[in-house]
Amino acid sequence: MLTEYNVEGGDFTRAGYASSQIKKTLKNLNISPEIIKRVVVALYEAEVNIVAHAFKGVISADISNSGIKLVLEDEGPGIPDIDMAMTKGYSTASSRVREMGFGAGMGLPNIKDNADRFNIVSRVGEGTRVTIEIDFAG
């Protein structure tokens, strides 16, 4: 089952909508609460990153019997140094983003912690693609 959601950069009132929809879908599929939390926490952090740091993006969620694969692809400034971005506490968030409650520099490391498989590729001046895979069993 494949679903797609559009995400607008800067639109903090809508940030989390896609994560919320996917949470409902997983609940209906009777996935365990522990797994659902890992999925939606990782997805929400990645969704907020598009809102906070990029211009716009698309989330695609592919749910199978064995797990979920989330791909978040954005058009934005990209990430010049991914190792640096993955460091806990590193953030370039604007003051506006900080006022919204983000910018701790903990999102990307937490996405990685929650994912069974995690990948990030980015081109400066073009955009970023984050892939998160979480298995339903074990």
Partner: peptide, 15 residues
């Protein structure tokens, strides 16, 4: 002290 939609979304995602 954060009163906006995102603090509630955070609670939602965190169960």
């Amino acid at each position: 002290g954060l009163a906006n939609v995102q603090s509630v979304r955070t609670a939602e995602m965190s169960d």
